[in-house]
Amino acid sequence: MIEIQNLRKEFVLSKQQRKELNTKDSIATAVDGIDFTCKPGRVFSLLGPNGAGKTTTLRMISTIFKPTAGSIKIDGIDAIANPREARKKIGFLTGSTGLYARLTPNEVIKYFADLYEVPKDKFEERKESLYTLLDMHDFQGKRIGKLSTGMKQKVSICRTMIHDPEVVVFDEPTSGLDVITAENIIELIRSCKNEGKTVIFSSHIMSEVDLLCDDLAIIHKGKMLFNGEMSDFKSQMQTDNLTAEFIRIVKSNTPIES
């Protein structure tokens, strides 16, 4: 379960950043007081155009960024007051996540299991089941730098899931991947849902959202425009497809009640 209340994030702009953004403001608000809840066994999708504040929100949930205001609870744990405890519950995967090219999949998986303090017997069991599920046995001892993009993605998935997280955060997980490789991620999201985990993923690909999500939030310029169930969203649509509706909402920039 992820519970977000009045979440806000401001960044202090440097002189150079002000020049680049062509603004006189010394502060940029990336996320501007949003609320939502992601429930276990359901897939929550965070939608928004580039620069909407999706990544910043997910980074706050994963405790990489500290919010300026608001509260985040991960399975009841206050993620701001107790970030290390919250992190134990979270698995984090982004499409742009790199891996250590000079290490082997075995070494990376062991490293992350150690960082998450996974007990040895549980680690062996978990590793074996993930390797079998993702068909990773053949390349487990090869250097990651020599693996294909698909193989690397499998290692990333295994790394994310090795500590059996209750909450899984995906930040544009399929960006830059071909359809076959992206399929691994889609499968992973489905299996997380079936296992009763809380899943949140950000995307701007509507077909992916349509395929996977149960609940949905649309944010734009840091503000929430829609927050509700996918079925509600579909029933309120004023256009004939999801992409057109998404564009219409973002362009109108007015919040919609679910």
């Binding site: 980074r59 290390r84 134990k88 982004t94 742009s96 996540t97 790199g98 891996l99 998450y116």
Partner: peptide
């Protein structure tokens, strides 16, 4: 540069 730091920071290590 390789984008690995983000993942490292989500682990329960100070």
């Amino acid at each position: 540069e390789r984008g690995t730091i983000e993942t490292l920071l989500t682990t329960p290590v100070a």
